[in-house]
Write a protein that binds this DNA or RNA. Sequence first.
DNA 1: ACCTGAACACCGTTCAAGT
DNA 2: ACCTGAACACCGTTCAAGT
Lengths: 219, 219
Amino acid sequence: MAARTQALSRERIVGAAVELLDAAGESGLTFRALSAQLRTGPGAIYWHVANKDELLIAATDAVLAPALAVGGADDTPQEAIRAVAVAVFDAIDGHPWIGSELSRASLQPAMLRIFERIGRQVQALGVPVAAQFAAASALRNYILGVGVQNAANARAAQPGADRTELLETAAGVWASLDPGEFPFTRAVAGQLSGHDDRVQFLDGVDLILAGIAGLRPPQ
Amino acid sequence: MAARTQALSRERIVGAAVELLDAAGESGLTFRALSAQLRTGPGAIYWHVANKDELLIAATDAVLAPALAVGGADDTPQEAIRAVAVAVFDAIDGHPWIGSELSRASLQPAMLRIFERIGRQVQALGVPVAAQFAAASALRNYILGVGVQNAANARAAQPGADRTELLETAAGVWASLDPGEFPFTRAVAGQLSGHDDRVQFLDGVDLILAGIAGLRPPQ
DNA sequence: ACCTGAACACCGTTCAAGT
DNA sequence: ACCTGAACACCGTTCAAGT
C-alpha cells in the first residue's frame, strides 16, 4: 500500500511535538513547524488540542509515563525509589525540555505519577502516616530540582554536548569565580569535572532516604 | 525640585522589570511595556541590557541577593542553612516568577550565591571534603525543587490567591483522582489542605540535614 | 465532524537616524 | 555615548469558509 496522509489525531500531534522538541529544543516547537510536519494548517491542531500549554503537558506525559514503568515486583522500597529517580533523571537527560516543562504546572499528570510512585514506597518503608507526605514531597522536590538543573545545563550548552562537556564548562566558570566571595564553590570546582553526576544524583537520593530512615519508629 | 525624566540606567531598567514582573507575572514583562513605563522606546533598553534573558537573570539576582543577606554570626550551621532556605522560599512566595527563572540558567549569580552559602555551612558541619559537594548539591536541589513547584502553583491559580487557597485547590484535584491509580496521593490529600507548607518545607530541609549528619565521621 | 489558511494581535530584536 | 521608533521576522490563536 502506498504511503498516504494519515488522519490527524491527538496522538499523532503529540508524537510529532515530541519529535520537534527532541530535535530542536523548546523553541523548535511552534504551531507552524508542527503543522508543516503534519502537512496541515496551524488551525487544524486546535481541533485536537486546546493550546500550547496542553500540548506541552501531553508531550511530557507521553515521554515520562512509559519511562516510569520500571522496577521489578521484588525490589525493596529503597530500590524502587532509586529506580523511579533514575527513570526521571534519564528521561530528562534524553529529552532536556522535560526538565523545564515539569516546572510549569504542578498538577500535571507526569508530576502526579512521580509523586504516587514515590509515596507508595515511602509507605512501604514504614514511615509513620503523619510523616509520609513530607517524606514523599522531599524526594519528589529533590528529583524535580535536579532535573530542572540538568535541563538548564543542557539548554545553556550547544545542542550536541553531553553531560561530561557540560560539567567541564561549569567547572571552568566555578574556578574563575572571585575567591573572596565564592571560596566554597571554587574549592569544589575540581570535584565537579571529575565526577559522575548520575552517581551523585543517587547519592543525594540516598541522603534523603537516610534521613527518612530516622523517621521510622523503633521496632 | 520638579519630577524630571531620569536618565536610563541598567539599575532603573532592572528595577522597572521587577515591578512589572511582580504586578503582572512573567507574561507582563515585555520590552514594549517596559519601555512605556520608562518613557522611552524599546530599542533604548538594548543599550544597557543585551537581551531578555540577561534582564530576567539580573531581575532575579536583584531580588535574591538582598534576601540572602540573612542570618546572624552566632547561628549554628543548621540554623544558617535553614535561614538560607527560608529566605529563598519567602522570596519566591513574594515574587513567584523567580521560581521559574531560577530554573532557566544554572550558572546565574543567584544560583551560585545560594550554593555558596549552603556549601560553607556544610563545611562547618564537619562533612568530609569528598562528600561536601554532594551534600550541598542535595540541599540546593531540594530548595530549587520546592521553589519551582510553588511558583508553578502560584501561576496555575488566580493572581490574588495566597498559599492556603492554592493548597485547597490542589487538595481538591488530588482527592478526585482515580483511587485505583493514585491511592497514595488520594490518601494524603487531606494532609495537604490542613498543613503549613512553609513548615513542611523546613521539615524536608531537616530530613536532608539528618541524612548529612550521618556523613560525619565519628569524633 | 474535521480541516484549511489567511488574518489578528501580539512578541523580541535590529538599525538607520537623530542628539 | 546614548536615545528614538519604525520595521523585520517571527509567535499563538481565531475564524470564516470549505469538505
